[in-house]
Design a protein around this nucleic acid. Structure first.
Lengths: 120, 120
DNA sequence: ATCAATACATAAGTAATTTAGGTATTTATT
DNA sequence: AATAAATACCTAAATTACTTATGTATTGAT
């Protein structure tokens, strides 16, 4: 039986963040060397003061896909009886991360052109 | 028979822009008063120097949805034998536009927190 | 003891697109 | 004059990136 203690009233302004999860993940791994899934969800929540909550249903499949694509590699670590999976960027992943940052810059500039045309 | 003269080699960095089309549209209509579909695709291409191309398959269904939701209203105009459909914000649409801009600001700030943590 | 937090996972459903067509008129090019 | 390109609308199937809703199991706090 499940008892939910936290009621999630998050609005669905979420759609703007679509497509951002992968660059966010790559950036965090670049900064931190290696991280595990749960840690990533918590770090994003901290960094954004709760504004952005990475759902596990989005994160875990992404981690698996990027591992399959050779962008991430994984190391298992045992904590007592539990397993923790640390992910880090492969050499390919580092190139991919750099590309993602360039694309993100272009994205931000493009938004600037549309939403703040005077400053451009 | 169809002969394609322009070969579209657009990469699929497109995913970052997912969820941005509606705020872009609302912003353009706020700035320009009224616009028609084809004009919107061209304006965005101009504004962004070709970086962002709004596809008609995305735009027209969105215009129809927003009209059905009472966010946009439409005026038909005849050009010779052709019809042009001008869209503009309803009063509801103006409120929606303002909300979208606030959400976009929050989005940009959140990205800042993740990608430029030092400047925040 | 019980609840909350930690830590992994998958699968069905949904929304915003892309891709790939389609029709028709008007303007430019050869 | 004929052809191509641009203008102007449209839709529907497929894809993508998620959300929502589950599930299991361990560990730490009250």
């Amino acid at each position: 039986m499940y008892l939910y203690t936290e009621i999630n009233i998050s609005v669905n302004k979420a759609s703007l963040y679509k497509g951002c999860l992968e660059p966010i993940l790559l950036k965090l791994l670049k900064e931190n060397g290696r991280m595990y899934g749960y840690e990533i969800t918590q770090r994003v929540k901290e960094l954004t003061a709760g504004e952005l909550k990475i759902t596990e249903g989005a994160l875990y499949p992404l981690l698996h896909r990027l591992e399959a694509e050779g962008i991430l590699e994984v190391e298992m670590e045992n904590l007592g009886n539990r397993v923790r999976k640390y992910y880090s960027l492969t050499p390919t992943g580092k190139k991919e991360q750099a590309k993602a940052m360039i694309e993100l810059e272009a994205f931000k500039n493009t938004l600037q052109l549309i939403f703040n045309p005077k400053l451009a």
